[in-house]
């Protein structure tokens, strides 16, 4: 007697999903716990390890009374701007590399590849000097600029555009479309998965950035959430893990909503390994 394949698939998928989610659930539970309970039920395991007894909203209230609201807004703002502008620019560059023919294309592609091999944190120092001289400290522009030009996103678009049949492009030329028309009316609409994944790259680069915002935007008005969260360490009573967990929950919540929304564009048109075998 064999179990139906769909059921096995569901069990495996659900197990994997829940395993990945477990630590995040623990963060969520921690966000609802009073400070002294955070590490109380670590060992031995009990139902209380993963369920908030004495649940409280005090952490959330305390968090949003401080600078965190502003920091979360800043994070959302700079990320949205960086993703929107970055998607357009990176898609255009990826298009040029995949479709246009020009001398030095290999060299430009090499520059793109090298640009994402360079550890950003290691070059933060000279870059900081440059931005400082340009007067971009404590500005949104200073926060956003490094996140717009992303070699990895360009590379992703190039790979994707290479897979679009060139017959479509030739048809566009015959219809009298300009290069921009081909890009805008043929390539972009066909590339939703690329937009979503390139958006993911740009989003997480900006959302997760820590060292750069710490240096370029230290002022409270421009502080981003990833930096604000680090301030709950080193207080009079040690580290305020309750507030760290609460802040982490809200920082993860916004991408979670976006991911959930964009999931529907990944609905499979085929089942690659065969639903019924």
């Amino acid at each position: 007697m064999k179990m139906p394949r769909g059921l096995i698939r569901l069990i495996v998928a659900a197990t994997a999903g829940l395993l990945f989610f477990l630590p995040i659930w623990w963060i969520t539970v921690g966000a609802l716990r009073p400070r002294e309970d955070i590490f109380r039920y670590l060992s031995p395991l009990s139902w209380e390890t993963l369920w908030p007894t004495n649940a409280t909203l005090n952490n959330i209230i305390q968090l949003f009374q401080g600078d965190f609201t502003r920091a979360l807004f800043n994070s959302v703002f700079v990320t949205v701007v960086a993703v929107v502008i970055g998607l357009i620019l990176c898609a255009m560059a990826g298009f040029a590399l995949a479709v246009m023919r020009f001398r030095g294309r290999e060299a430009v592609f090499f520059v793109v590849v090298v640009s994402f091999l360079i550890p950003f944190d290691a070059i933060a120092l000279p870059l900081f000097g440059l931005m400082l001289d340009a007067g971009l400290q404590n500005t949104y522009i200073g926060l956003i600029l490094p996140g717009i030009g992303n070699g990895l996103a360009v590379f992703l678009y190039r790979q994707f555009f290479l897979g679009i049949p060139k017959e479509l492009r030739e048809a566009g030329v015959i219809d009298g479309m300009t290069t921009f028309g081909i890009f805008w009316r043929i390539y972009l609409p066909l590339s939703l998965p690329a937009h979503i994944t390139a958006g993911l790259i740009l989003f997480l680069f900006q959302w997760q950035a820590y060292l750069w915002p710490l240096l370029i935007a230290p002022d409270t008005d421009y502080k981003v959430a990833a930096v604000a969260i680090a301030q709950f360490t080193d207080n009079i009573e040690g580290t305020q893990y309750n507030l760290i967990f609460t802040a982490a929950f809200f920082i993860a919540l916004i991408p979670m909503i976006l991911i959930t929304y964009f999931q529907k564009y990944f609905t499979a048109s085929v089942s690659s390994l065969g639903g019924k075998g």
């Binding site: 569901l10 991408p255 979670m256 991911i259």
Partner: peptide
Amino acid sequence: AKGPLIGLWRTLILLPAAVP
């Protein structure tokens, strides 16, 4: 593949990337 709550499982697996 299509399946029950498939979007949810994908979301849960991707979610750790969003945590600082």
